[in-house]
């Protein structure tokens, strides 16, 4: 007790940037530790790894004996799998983050510490992002082992880029999830909205765009523009451009995009993903700062 009180004013008021970043870093580390110890993380990682390995294995074993694998149906299956699982993983992780703290009552306690809401939010974001990337690294790493063992598969560069784009997709979905978490009062609501968003991005928006392209006879540039708004489509196109150097796989719309945009196309798609990362996160910070519920 005495040690505590020998110096009555040890606290100095600091506004240093180092303190700001330090706070974020501590939250990030705590979030990461909690995430990788949690059931959802382990479950998703195992599920993703098993599926990714399965798909990699299948895509090679079909004609693997001929030492050839292309971007065929099963390789596309990996893409399909990523587009289903990764957004689900990231959206639910994000949706649970702030709402969960609020519901458990821990949010108030954390905010009563000398930290800002921005620090808390960014710290949680970075921690969860690191956990997601870690999970993806494990999934991709194990499938790379399978690919290496079966030799000649998808090119190393393409595979690394696939991983990078998947990480970008995960980060954008995570920030969308955090936005949902900030505006939802309860974890249940946040998870529900997260699932609904997932459903919308994965199925509803594509189906809607298909229907409207038939009904309204949309032109290729309109279809491309609308599709590129969906981060999942941007992701898919970015991966395919990367593997094929062209989008002609995607029919007239893809060919149009490849011809008119050329070398700018991958950058455009990557920046769409980046925008989907920064915009929801920025909005989440704004709203979280303004919200008064704890």
């Amino acid at each position: 007790m005495s040690a505590m009180t020998t110096t009555p004013r040890t606290v100095t008021v600091r506004t240093s940037a180092a303190g700001f970043v330090g706070g974020i870093w501590h939250f990030a580390r705590r979030e990461f530790r909690d995430a990788i110890a949690s059931k959802w993380f382990i479950l998703y990682t195992i599920a993703f790894t098993v599926l990714a390995v399965g798909v990699s294995f299948l895509s090679l074993s079909g004609v693997g004996s001929h030492g050839f694998a292309g971007f065929g149906r099963t390789a596309a299956g990996l893409l399909n799998l990523i587009m289903l699982v990764v957004p689900l993983m990231a959206l639910t992780a994000g949706a649970g983050s702030i709402a969960g703290e609020r519901e458990r009552g821990t949010l108030l306690y954390l905010l009563a510490q000398p930290v800002s809401r921005t620090q808390l939010l960014l710290g949680k974001y970075l921690g969860l992002a690191a956990a997601l990337v870690c999970s993806l690294c494990i999934g991709f790493g194990v499938s790379a082992v399978v690919l290496a063992w079966r030799a000649d598969g998808v090119g190393t560069g393409s595979f690394a880029m696939l991983m990078s784009f998947t990480a970008m997709l995960a980060l954008s979905m995570l920030s969308l999830g955090m936005l949902i978490s900030v505006i939802s009062r309860r974890t249940g609501v946040a998870t529900g909205v997260g699932l609904f968003t997932w459903l919308t991005l994965v199925f509803v928006s594509d189906l809607g765009l298909m229907a409207s392209s038939i009904i309204f006879k949309l032109r290729v540039q309109e279809i491309f523009g609308l599709a590129a708004l969906n981060p999942l489509q941007s992701f898919k196109m970015a991966v395919i451009v990367n593997m094929n150097a062209s989008l002609d796989v995607l029919g007239p719309v893809g060919a149009y995009a490849s011809q008119t945009l050329g070398g700018a196309l991958p950058w455009l798609l990557a920046s769409s993903l980046l925008a989907w990362t920064l915009a929801p996160l920025g909005l989440a910070m704004l709203l979280f700062g303004r919200r008064s519920s704890v």
Binding site: V11, V13, R14, T15, D34, A37, R104, G105, T106, L108, Y109, A112, Q113, P114, V115, S116, Q119
Partner: peptide, 23 residues
Amino acid sequence: RHGRQARALVGYVPQELAFHDDS
């Protein structure tokens, strides 16, 4: 305006400590 600095001067004890139960 300076919540972070103000809170650095405060030790807060809630009704019941709400912290991650697993830690």
